[in-house]
């Protein structure tokens, strides 16, 4: 099981925003929030699968939300209901289970994994607030609104503006690096732990090839296996963090 490139069936696919696609696939695998799959809906080329986070999951199906940015996502976006695709995964560590009142701060496509995470935390009976930034227009508004205790969806501007991070026990963040860096800094000043989910180019997805190595405070880590979720302080330390 697991990496056994399970074949998935497209259950539904919709464009929910400008070049933003919501894809639901039937699969027997069950992910954890913050994990990802390598998707491919083609034979030889492109060579590599595309890492996409879990937006939502329930018995027998997994949902993704992705932006069309290149060849791979273009092919994925053209899938039709009942088309088949390969899912390898779920991979990665996912967000940790933590106690207390939790804040989730997202931006851009970093919002996708936070949706699944908020839902899971809420289902455990925890208080969880979602604060998400969208570039142009909000998409999947209802889904995001239902996922958390309080959801704030913002278009343009900085999600970190006017944020009362001291109201929370833990903060999770995923999105553009300047945003994550700012959130980690605010958490540090407020004295609360932060977790970030980062992106690196990947090949094997399971920790064997070392193309996704991420430099952390405690040495090299594999983004695909040790991550993609890390403690914020492990990644953004001494202004040394460099993403590629």
């Amino acid at each position: 099981m697991g990496v056994e490139g399970t074949e998935g069936n497209v259950l539904s696919i919709q464009e929910v925003g400008e070049e933003i696609v919501h894809l639901t696939v039937a699969t027997p695998t069950t992910p954890k929030p913050g994990q990802f799959y390598l998707l491919r809906a083609w034979q030889e080329a492109p060579l590599l699968g595309r890492p996409i986070s879990v937006f939502d999951y329930s018995e027998g199906k997994v949902e993704f939300v992705f932006k069309v940015v290149g060849k791979g996502t273009e092919i994925l976006a053209k899938l039709k209901v009942n088309d088949k695709l390969q899912l390898q995964g779920p991979f990665g560590n996912g967000f940790p289970e933590v106690e207390g009142k939790i804040l989730l701060v997202g931006g851009g496509l970093g919002n996708a994994p936070l949706h699944a995470t908020a839902k899971a935390l809420k289902a455990r009976g925890q208080e969880v607030d979602l604060r998400l930034g969208f570039a142009e227009k909000v998409y999947l508004e209802e889904e995001f609104n239902q996922a958390a205790t309080i959801t704030q969806l913002m278009v343009g501007g900085l999600v970190t503006d006017g944020l009362n991070i001291r109201d929370y026990d833990v903060v999770f963040t995923c999105g553009p690096h300047p945003m994550m860096e700012a959130v980690v800094k605010m958490a540090r000043e407020a004295g609360i732990p932060s977790y970030v989910s980062i992106e690196k180019r990947m090949a094997c997805g399971i920790g064997a090839c070392l193309v996704c190595t991420c430099k952390t405070k405690s040495g090299n880590k594999k983004t695909c296996k040790d991550g993609p979720v890390f403690e914020g302080e492990e990644i953004f330390y001494e202004d040394k963090y460099q993403i590629s």
Binding site: L47, R201, K215, N220
Partner: peptide
């Protein structure tokens, strides 16, 4: 060895380039 810094993988139409640098 910690390996090389920066981007370590880049796709081509029928292959990939790696710059792991013997980590």
């Amino acid at each position: 060895r910690d390996g090389n810094e920066g981007i370590r993988v880049w796709e081509t139409p029928a292959g990939m380039m790696n710059s792991v640098g013997l980590e």
